[in-house]
Design a protein around this nucleic acid. Structure first.
Length: 429
DNA sequence: TCTGGGGTCCTAGGACCC
DNA sequence: TCTGGGGTCCTAGGACCC
């Protein structure tokens, strides 16, 4: 049996955990630059605020119902997530952190003596997370991960279940799948849902009974796994030993549209420094660097059809002569890639970075035409990370970075980093 | 006026190897 | 005249996830 434990409205719940005034009232968390809704409390959902809505579209609702706004505070959410995940080891040995607000657990018979029923185990997890972290969770139990996802969603949609849904026998599974919309299934996105519906498959039970080879042709082996999982045969195992990331990307939008190369280069430098930090955090090095640049696709500038109202986007990938996690190694390649795609005259919204070809740090090989880094060079990055952890982000940065940061994002409703910044914690209490 | 950010997996096809 | 069989590696593109 698997369980899926999921924090309800994660970001909003984290904010509420430290700010009781947000309880019982509509709250939304906003994405970068406070533009876009990325989490909603139940009260906000009832007002009809949709996921992903732009703030200007719901400004009337915000004013009428005094909806509380929170800028996204990932220092807080990430730390609460780590606490939530580590708490799960108090109950079971096999834990797979799946996303910032979800964990899969393997719940086998060995826990029978401690928790005589899945229901009892679920209640115990729910109560403990609430007591220790003040976060509300829902839990679904079932024989496969996909069915546990189904059970979790049922727990969430039916308040009378009080956050717990157990699917064990076939009759329960049949009923659940019959009522489960195809597009809500884990692994069925917009396009597959459309195709399945066109072929007469509208609920999960119909998909479970579908012909395997026909599914494979359209939905590849992943679709096949999904059907097996619905039939109760595990095709996705618990991955409790997460591999390092194979792609690392940093691409926040600017706080306003930026036309000039100087400011964009400055942003690129800062983003690249973040990428290297992420690499070092998982003890990796990378060799492939993609830089992309684009204007705001949603902007419909009325009036003069001159350059400033047209769209532009471009990208360039470069391969370094060796793997690295050091900003100084990446920077010249990043800057020349940027210069090769930059075109004068457009108002840009974002410069983004993607790193690929990522390998463990101790797999480092000297390039044929480049010297291997010295031990001091290898250590430098980790030393900078240590200083920035201790004295605050950007305590140490490269000299070419500017201090004014004209491009930086806007966050007008940011809460404190309650759990990770001791000074702020003292102020808060 | 204003619309997020960061990932994974799979497949096909091209270039190359012996 | 007749031109095999079995691989690897890389990339782009498409689908999905939270």
């Amino acid at each position: 049996m698997f369980a899926l434990v999921d924090v309800n409205s994660m970001y909003v719940s984290c904010e509420r955990s430290f700010n009781p005034r947000l309880k019982g009232v509509p709250v939304v968390a906003l994405g970068n630059n406070d533009h876009c809704v990325i989490a909603r409390s139940d009260e906000a959902k009832k007002l009809g605020i949709k996921m992903g809505a732009a703030r200007f579209q719901i400004q009337d609702l915000i004013d009428q119902h005094n909806v509380q706004l929170c800028s996204s505070n990932f220092a807080l959410y990430g730390d609460m997530s780590a606490r939530f995940q580590s708490l799960m080891y108090n109950f079971v040995e096999d834990v797979e952190p799946y996303s910032i607000d979800e964990v899969f657990l393997k719940v086998d018979g060995s826990y029978d003596t401690l928790y005589p029923s899945y229901q009892g185990l679920g209640e115990s997890i729910r109560n403990t997370v609430m007591q220790w972290l003040r976060l509300p969770v829902c839990i679904g139990f079932a024989p496969t991960k996909t069915l546990a996802k189904v059970a979790n969603r049922i727990a969430k949609k039916n308040p009378e279940l009080e956050g717990i849904c157990v699917l064990t026998n076939q009759a329960e599974v049949d009923t659940a799948l019959e009522q489960f919309e195809i597009e809500d299934l884990w692994g069925v996105g917009y396009r597959y849902a459309k195709w399945l519906k066109n072929n007469g498959i509208t609920n999960a039970r119909q998909l479970r009974n579908a012909e395997i080879e026909w599914i494979r042709k359209k939905m590849t082996v992943q679709g096949v796994r999904l059907v097996y999982e619905l039939r109760g045969y595990p095709a996705r195992l618990l991955e409790d030993n997460p591999l390092p990331k194979r792609t690392i990307s940093v691409a926040p939008s600017f706080g306003k549209l930026i036309p000039d190369l100087t400011n964009i280069t400055d942003a690129l430098t800062t983003h690249l420094a973040r990428c290297c930090e992420k690499l070092r955090k998982q003890n990796s090095i990378a060799r492939h660097l993609t830089i992309y640049l684009h204007t705001n696709r949603n902007r419909k500038t009325p009036g003069r059809p001159d350059l400033a109202s047209k769209q532009y986007s471009a990208s360039r990938t470069v391969k370094l002569p060796f793997h690295s996690n050091n900003l100084i190694d990446f920077l010249p390649y990043g800057i020349s890639a940027l210069q090769s795609i930059y075109q004068f005259g457009y108002p840009y919204q974002k410069v983004g970075i993607i790193l690929n070809d990522i390998v463990p740090e101790d797999n480092r090989q000297a390039g044929v035409f480049a010297d291997a880094p010295t031990p001091e060079q290898l250590e430098l990055g980790h030393v900078i990370d240590g200083l920035n952890r201790r004295f605050g982000r950007d305590a140490v940065y490269v000299a070419s970075q500017r201090k004014d940061r004209e491009w930086e994002m806007v966050q007008g409703h940011l809460s404190q980093r309650y759990t990770t910044n001791w000074n702020e914690l003292l102020v808060a209490y």
